[in-house]
């Protein structure tokens, strides 16, 4: 497979993951607010604000990546989101919180912070590859 194809697959996969992550949160924002609250990082009301805004940010950036529009912007935001998620997960691990990551479908089987952290590291690497290719292309 040519390198360009490979990066395109990475980009579409990454965008798809974020769209897939956004939809259940948009459908059930209260459950997502609960997942955010379980991290015990934000004050009460801000859990709801995060639950209201984050999924749409994920959705928009996911769509940008899938369609190949403004890829650098989408990828930079997704990279930043991934970093924020990783810091939150790491803080949950450090504080010994036994919570569900709340990353995708809300409720149901629990994803431990460690697994979620590893998964986010993969997404971050994918983002870096997409950004690197964008830079080469633009430069």
């Amino acid at each position: 497979m040519k390198r360009i194809d490979f990066v395109m697959v990475l980009r579409i996969a990454l965008g798809g993951v974020f769209i897939y992550a956004a939809v259940p949160k948009i459908v059930d924002p209260v459950a997502f607010a609960g997942s955010v609250a379980a991290y015990r990082i934000l004050p009460y009301f801000w859990n709801y604000v995060a639950a209201a805004v984050l999924p749409f940010l994920e959705l928009i950036c996911g769509v940008l990546l899938v369609l190949g529009i403004r890829v650098r912007t989408g990828a930079l935001i997704i990279g930043a989101l991934n970093l924020v998620f990783m810091v939150a997960l790491a803080s949950a691990i450090v504080r010994g919180l036994d919570i569900d990551c709340g990353c995708f479908r809300q409720g149901g089987e629990k994803t431990t912070p460690w697994l979620a952290l590893a998964r986010d590291a993969v997404f971050l690497a994918m983002t870096a590859a997409v950004l690197r290719y964008e830079r080469l292309r633009a430069g």
Partner: peptide
């Protein structure tokens, strides 16, 4: 461009969840 996307997401998110946010507030 990043600021614009974030702002757009914030606007849609807040508008979409207006009732929930009002209740939470």
């Amino acid at each position: 461009e990043i600021a614009l996307v974030v702002l757009l997401a914030a606007l849609i998110g807040v508008a979409w969840n207006k009732t929930l946010l009002t209740d939470a507030w």
